[in-house]
């Protein structure tokens, strides 16, 4: 039995897949704390789709795929900002408009000029078949993101919580906003091959959302979230070996299962404890009837 469970560890490609997924999962999860609190989920989803044409263009220009993908993601983000600041359209409409355009362009380019990475891989991910040079790119991106987050999380926290105060103490909020956006695009690129463009957003939202229900301290939220990201990604990659299915699907479903458990049973903010608490406190309200003054004869 143990032998069977440990089987994936005998294969180099599995070991690599688990390590890479775990690393990316942890970094995405760390960033997800900011994404969920800032309300940037839709933005993250858009960026992860907008990187697609960059992959194809990078291949045509003989550039590393990450460079093209990242450039494409940032271009999409800046386009959104530009349009948003010059129309009365709501943000979600602008986001929807821009990222679908980028995605359509990507699909078109890839079907016109088949590249070394297939459309299915980009959309659905394939961490088991990932090339060595791609791993190097991914690991570098994730490592830089991790370093920036660990060094600057307090500034990013203040920017997320209260940008006015960030200004008041002399922080450059425009720069911090751009930094957060850049990190978002970078992790979207890093996670692209692991879980695919469609599922990247889950890695950038679910762990943070889960951790948020478990604590009301930001530091702890980051620790819990990255723990969740690390574990689910490793276990997800491991499980996909047995189920012979998509790694991305396994990872994301695992994260969802964890989220649901927490949603129902979290000690303070869980569904069940809150209901129990409400029931208990409504019971303990003393039943006192207002005394109606006796009616006086006129």
């Amino acid at each position: 039995m143990t032998e069977l469970l440990l089987a994936p560890f005998q294969y180099d490609y599995m070991l690599r897949a688990m390590l890479v997924s775990g690393f990316i999962g942890a970094v995405c999860a760390l960033l997800s704390c900011f994404v969920t609190l800032k309300g940037w989920s839709l933005m993250g989803d858009a960026l992860s789709h907008a990187v697609v044409p960059g992959v194809s263009i990078a291949f045509l220009l003989h550039l590393p795929f990450a460079v093209g993908a990242f450039a494409s993601g940032m271009l999409a983000a800046l386009t959104m900002n530009f349009i948003k600041s010059r129309t009365r359209l709501r943000e979600d409409a602008v986001i929807g408009l821009v990222f679908t355009t980028f995605l359509a362009l990507g699909v078109l380019l890839i079907s016109l000029y088949p590249s070394n990475i297939s459309l299915t891989t980009i959309i659905l991910g394939n961490v088991l078949g990932i090339a060595d040079e791609d791993i190097l790119q991914i690991v570098i991106i994730a490592a830089v993101t991790l370093a920036v987050l660990l060094l600057k999380w307090k500034d990013l926290l203040l920017f997320t919580f209260d940008p006015h105060q960030a200004r008041a103490v002399g922080l450059n909020t425009d720069l911090l906003g751009l930094l957060l956006l850049t990190l978002l695009a970078a992790t979207a690129v890093a996670a692209l091959q692991a879980v695919g463009a469609i599922l990247v957003i889950a890695m950038l939202v679910t762990p943070g959302a889960t951790a948020y229900l478990l604590t009301d301290r930001f530091g702890r939220m980051m620790a819990i979230s990255s723990g969740i990201g690390l574990l689910t990604s490793i276990v997800g990659a491991w499980a996909s070996f047995f189920l012979n299915t998509s790694t991305g699907g396994c990872i994301v479903l695992l994260q969802t299962i964890l989220f649901l458990l927490v949603f129902f049973f979290a000690p303070k903010y869980g569904f069940v404890p809150i209901r129990r608490q409400t029931r208990r406190s409504t019971k303990s309200i003393p039943v006192t009837r207002a005394r109606v003054p006796e009616s006086h004869p006129h």
Partner: peptide, 22 residues
């Protein structure tokens, strides 16, 4: 509903005096 405590919030007033790592 942001996960910060009273103490965290008050320290945010001191960020401008703190070092690079805050």
């Amino acid at each position: 509903s942001f996960p910060v405590s009273v103490w965290d919030v008050v320290l945010m007033g001191r960020y401008g005096y703190m070092n690079f790592l805050r």
